[in-house]
Design a binder for these strands. Sequence first.
DNA 1: GTCTATAGACAGATAGAC
DNA 2: GTCTATCTGTCTATAGAC
Lengths: 193, 193
Amino acid sequence: MARKSGSSSEKTRPLVRSAALSLFARYGFAAVSMRQIAAEVGVQAGALYRYTPDKQSLLFELMQVHMEELLAAWGEVDPKGAPLDRLDSFVRFHIHHHMDRAEAVFISYMELRNLTPANFAVIEGLRAQYEQVLEEILNACGAAAGDRKLTTLAVLAMLTGVNTWYREGGRLDRDAIADSYVGMVRGLISAAA
Amino acid sequence: MARKSGSSSEKTRPLVRSAALSLFARYGFAAVSMRQIAAEVGVQAGALYRYTPDKQSLLFELMQVHMEELLAAWGEVDPKGAPLDRLDSFVRFHIHHHMDRAEAVFISYMELRNLTPANFAVIEGLRAQYEQVLEEILNACGAAAGDRKLTTLAVLAMLTGVNTWYREGGRLDRDAIADSYVGMVRGLISAAA
DNA sequence: GTCTATAGACAGATAGAC
DNA sequence: GTCTATCTGTCTATAGAC
């Protein structure tokens, strides 16, 4: 069963994925052509169809892998202890994980409308699962008598918003940013109306 | 100076703007063709060029008008009183104003990368002005000894995030949502680290 | 597995008739 | 002010050589 280890296929496939990732993030799915992706990989456009049935599948797989990795990564980090500790851990996890995957995060928020309805439903389901993770933590925290769903969405928007301005080497380092957000989230949930 | 009041130009121009607004919001700038816009307006594609020099200008003007209206609208609503009252007013203003202009808000966040560099600079300047409005309010509030810029961005991301899920006729009405956010923002800034 | 070549559709923008 | 017609270029995806 040994596969030929030097086979070009195993080298090209990840190049296609990463070229699509960075080009879609920079210019948008609709504005990027298969020829641009091919040029970034270093092949001709026709060769891409060895690795994806079409452009849509390329987008969908990037988003699906991103969302599944996100859920799996939290599963490994979740301290499963006291609710307020879990909340702090979630905030730090979300910020660091998203900082490390800026392109995939950007695509997953910006390109939802370019998914076919069937593909959209899959991604939306994964997104709902992730929201559910935070909602359950907030329930366990017994946050003030506010609307839990609203609080969940407010916190997630606030945390994900970091990606719109964070750049490596900026004024604040990653840990200092995460610390600040831990504090803000604590204040927010203690007042959630 | 009387202009011919029934002139078709004065009817078509706003139709072009609103057709572009809703189509760009739904499918994205790059995915919408001039022919689609023309069909929505009820003219042929060539006629659009009476109202815009090109597709790029159509996008830019929508975003520019949106940002200038946003700044002007706050200028009219700003109570200019006690800092904490101004903060509450800002939160309510932002949420209601954004709820009423979902398409323009969506475009202004999603299509930044489709602006030419010169146009992008203009929109970014307007956006920075709006951030400055909130930052000054937070300074006046003397929010806890945290990083003010960080707090500003966190609050804005949280407030604008409402647009990703709010739909008219949903479970919570507009005022109830705004009330909740006023409470969450108050908690957040009292803890901002 | 990658190439060249191409099909068939559609893009933005312009010219000139009415 | 809108039309029809068209220029010129691009797109996704496929076929078949190597």
